[in-house]
């Protein structure tokens, strides 16, 4: 079910439902790509969620540019309807696969032991499970370059912690059936199971973020030694 609603007078959201799944997310990415290819004067930004796409626009530029009698909102709404009908998933579904090395040492994976214990599995089984699947990057948000990925196996899924703690940059966590990597040190409530030596965010890079929505990610276990020598 598609709906379009205002987020104030400078933004508008197209939403395809309230579920996390690959099918809806692929359509959203197709819509995002269509929008970029058909950009208009006054378009400031595009953000995608799991199953939504939000456009940020300057109403006064749109009104001037297109000599509108009706509202700029109405005009952008029609643009989004067009994006919905004309964007083709097939054109944009070749994902990029990114392998992320992760050290699952318990010094880094501060919540791994508790998570494994609550699921009555060994930490080794937890790591094997986490590294055996391919995860889709559904969206980027929360922090610059923070990728919301899923879905993790129900066996290792774990609700967010009640109390957020300071999480180190590179930490790999699990929240519900999502998995993610903290690009920067930040307060966070995800269950931390390891750490990557890769930089998820580098200000001087173009783009400054390693992962983008639509990417497929595999985690590869590395030893503490490999981790320590990674950036040498």
């Amino acid at each position: 079910m598609m709906e379009i609603y205002a987020i104030g007078d400078g933004a508008i959201t197209l939403q395809l439902g309230n579920q996390v799944n690959d099918f809806l997310n692929k359509k959203i990415i197709a819509i995002q790509n269509w929008i970029w290819q058909n950009s208009f004067a006054g378009l400031k930004d595009v953000v995608i969620g799991y199953a939504s796409c939000t456009l940020y626009y300057d109403a006064s530029i749109i009104k001037q540019q297109y000599h509108l009698a009706s509202s700029a909102h109405q005009w952008v709404k029609q643009f989004l309807e067009q994006a919905y009908h004309q964007s083709l998933v097939a054109l944009y579904t070749q994902p990029r696969t990114v392998t992320i090395p992760v050290c699952y040492d318990l010094d880094f994976g501060t919540d791994a032991a508790a998570l494994a214990a609550s699921k009555s599995i060994s930490v080794e089984a937890l790591v094997n499970n986490h590294t055996s699947n391919t995860y889709r990057v559904y969206m980027i948000g929360f922090l610059p370059g923070f990728a919301y990925m899923g879905m993790v196996d129900a066996l290792i899924a774990m609700p967010r912690k009640q109390k957020p703690q300071t999480v180190a940059a590179g930490s790999v966590g699990i929240a519900g059936q999502q998995t993610g990597i903290y690009p920067l040190q930040s307060p966070g409530g995800w269950n931390i199971i390891g750490r990557t030596p890769l930089q998820l965010f580098t200000a001087s890079n173009q783009p400054p973020v390693l992962l983008q929505a639509g990417d497929e990610v595999r985690f590869e276990a590395i030893s503490r030694e490999v981790f320590d020598n990674w950036n040498l």
Binding site: I7, G8, T13, Q15, V20, T54, M139
Partner: peptide, 10 residues
């Protein structure tokens, strides 16, 4: 609700 885009003033 699942995460969506937000803006200043939301």
């Amino acid at each position: 609700i699942i995460s969506t885009g937000v803006t200043r003033g939301t």
